[in-house]
Structure formats: C-alpha cells, structure tokens
Design a protein around this nucleic acid. Structure first.
Lengths: 227, 227
DNA sequence: GAAATTCAGATTGTCAGACAATCTAATCAT
DNA sequence: ATGATTAGATTGTCTGACAATCTGAATTTC
C-alpha cells in the first residue's frame, strides 16, 4: 500500500465484494443474499462492520434488509440518489463545464437515432410536443424544471438505449441548479428552442437539431459566466 | 406512523437530520461537523447506530471521517453513484445490441475532443500506443481483456470528462463477457484496429477514426450473430 | 527565540456480547 | 384443508472495550 494512498476502509472493501458477488452471481432484484452473520464470517469481520457496508448499499437501494428474512438484492433508488446528491449544490465536485460538455455529448449523440425513431413512431413527436405545450402553461419554476428535465429525458429515451437514460438521470441531478437559475424571462427562449429541435428532428434535419441543441444547452455556459 | 408505511429506520431519520444540519448551517466542503459521540448524544442513540447513517452519507461523499480529527462535510461523489449505476433497472436487462450501441455513441462522441487533446498533449498518443504495444505482447485472455478495457478507457479518459469515464467503467463490466469471447486469432485484428484509430486521431482524421472505431466495436455484433 | 520532537488526549475504526423487533416455516387446532 | 400459534432465524440497536490515527500543547534542541 503506497504511503500516499489512503488505506481502504473495511466497509469499502466489503461493498466492492458485495457488488462483485451480485454481479458475478448474476443476481436479480429480489434474490436472496447470504445473511449478515454468514457474510461477516465469510469476510472474516464482525457483523457490525459488515453492516457498515450493507447499510451504505442499502441507502442506494442496491441491497434490501428485512428483519427475520435477511438480505436481498434491490434496485437503485434514484429518488434517494437525487435527494442526497442534489440537496446542496455547493457540495458538487463536478465542474459546470464538464457537466455541460457531458450532456452535450450524450444528447447530440442520440439525435440521429431519435430522428430515425421518429420516422417509425409518431408518439415520440407527440410526447415531445406535449411536454413543450405543458411548458408553455407553466407558472412555477419547480414545474418548469420538472418539465425541462422530462423533455430532455424523453429525447434521450427515444434513442432506445436505457443505459443512457439512467446516466442522464444522474446528470440531471447535478444539472438541476442550472435549470433553477433560469429566469422566467428566459423560459420562452428555451421553449422555442425545444420546438425548433422537435421540428428539425421530425423533418430529419439532424444537423440543424444538433446545432439548436448545442446552443440550447450551451446557453448555460453563458449564464454561468455572466454571474 | 401509518400502518401501511414502513417504519423509518433510525439511520434514515439520522441521515435526514444530518442533511438538514448541513443545509441549515449552509456548511461547505471541509467544514467540521460534531463528533460521532456528540451527534449520537444529540440524537439520543448509540454511536454505532449513528455511524450507520454517517457511513451511508460517507459512501456518497457527503460526509468525510478521519480518525483523530472527526467528521467533516465532503463533496458529492458522482463517480461512486455512477459506479453503482450498473444496478439501475435500466441496465439490468440490457441487450448486447443496446450495450454495443451505447458504447458506440459514447466512444465515437469523444473522438473530436480526443483528437483536439492530442494536439496539445503528446502523452495521450504515447499512452494509447503503450497499451497497444502491451496488447501485442499479451499471451493470456485475462490480460488481453484487461488491456483492451484500458485502451478504451484511456480513449474516453482523454476526453477530459470524468463522468464519461465512470460511465464507461460501468459499461465495461457488462461488456466484459463479449471481450472474453474474442478468439485469440482475432486479437491481431483488434490491435491493428486500435492502431488505425490512434494514428487517425494523431493525424486529426476524426472521421476516419470514427469509422474505424465503429467497425471495431460493431465487430462484436457479428461475432454475436454468428453464435 | 525559533524550530523540531514528543506525548497526552481526542476521535474514528472495529470488535464481542447481548437483547428487542420482525419474519417465516413448521406444528397444532378446528 | 384452513387458520392460528409458536419456535427459530434474522435484522435493528445497544453497551462496553480497545486499536489506529490525528492534533495541539509541552518539552527539547539548536
């Protein structure tokens, strides 16, 4: 162990091993895991130390524990993740620039797939338009943020690639503070931009949609620099 | 407490209160929190129960703990969350095709940034070449898989976007079985492909690198369909 | 007097042992 | 066969204890 490297805490090692156990066993949500006592014996540690790892995983929903029953595999609890990663933006370690660039890469990357999908499935166009209509009716910032997230989520979702949806949900947590800093006077600009993206995609003008989306997301750069 | 609602675990209540404490105090990263012993007394619970909450928050980076020093406010760890994104429902039933398409989208998406980076930073070219050289020396599948992952990781890493690195690592876990099904006779093809990607990027021929990378990753499609 | 070293006290990390609360499968009663 | 009861299993929480690490005060060295 390099002296400049912090020694891994027992619980971190255990969390990694539990992760591996679930992945390698190809376990599904609901599948039983060994009991706390068995796992503690297996890893050669005390039950309470084992719990420090399992409680961390349980907090994220990855593991579920029930008295009398034992441990089972869970599902990532995105509500919990959202709540705890987003409650105090001052604690975010990702830079705004990285966040914006990452979003750009993902969202522009799905555009060809979305346009292609729209040719076969009219509901994508309808859903995007419906959300944008809702945005036009919105009076509160909370609702606006919610719908803006929904719009971009629907866009990525139309790619048919669920992993990107999941990743987008994580990015949205960190991006929220930027959305919340959008002034009401700027909502109309954002809505018009959404509309141009929708229409360009519907007309299979992917390049145009790409440029519009870049301008749309990059506008956050400008707002940030103006502060 | 509603009988249809599960009773909140002590640790969940405590995590909420810690969150509130940080928020209401407008605490920043690095700020001191009360000690475990003091918090346990404040909340009227045992120190170990207190730790179950603090360890959950520590897992997310929200809290940091150091022996002799105490608890401090941390920084939200996006990489940790992304690392465990593999347990998200969306990734659970991921199809090989989705996995391949997702990888394609990410890895081709970073190519312009990588080429741009290579103009300023010779070490990217060197690192990619070094990995590919190591691949040429490899005799075991385990090592080959390891290095192939390292190559693609370095490629995405050169984008300068840590969140994408974290996501790529998650995808790599799922992709591992495909890499492991690559026959030894196909290694040379893969290595040559890597080399063409490296050289194209070095020469700022992004389009060519893009096409080569697509063919490289898409070759998994073909192997899958042949099985 | 300033800098380096030492050390006592504080704090987290981990453990053993214990009991309460909850669950489940086996057993008993109808 | 169905419903109720119960013993055993499992998690939730606690007390008490000691090891490892950190920090600031006291002491020593130059």
């Amino acid at each position: 162990m390099d002296s400049t490297t912090e020694r891994a805490k027992l619980r971190e090692v255990v969390a990694e091993r539990l992760k591996a156990l679930i992945l390698e066993g190809n376990l599904q949500s609901g599948d039983r895991l060994p009991t706390e006592t068995a796992l503690a014996a297996k890893f050669g540690i005390s039950r309470l130390s084992l719990r420090e790892a399992t409680k961390s995983l349980e907090f994220l929903g990855i593991v579920e524990a029930r008295p009398g029953r034992g441990l089972t595999v869970g599902r990532v609890n995105m509500e919990r993740v959202t709540e705890y990663l987003g409650f105090h933006p001052a604690l975010h370690d990702i830079s705004p620039k990285e966040l914006i660039e990452t979003r750009l890469l993902i969202e522009t990357g799905v555009l060809p797939r979305v346009a292609s999908r729209m040719k076969q499935d009219g509901s994508v166009y309808e859903k995007l338009n419906a959300i944008n209509s809702d945005l036009r009716q919105t009076r509160t910032l909370t609702r606006w943020v919610e719908l803006d997230i929904a719009f971009h989520r629907e866009l990525v979702g139309a790619s048919g690639l669920p992993p990107l949806m999941a990743f987008t949900d994580v990015l949205a947590v960190f991006f929220r503070r930027f959305r919340e800093s959008v002034k009401k006077a700027e909502w109309a600009t954002g809505i018009a931009s959404h509309q141009r993206i929708i229409d360009a995609l519907q007309a299979d003008r992917v390049r145009e949609a790409d440029q519009e989306l870049r301008a749309h997301i990059a506008s956050h750069h400008e707002r940030l620099n103006a502060r």
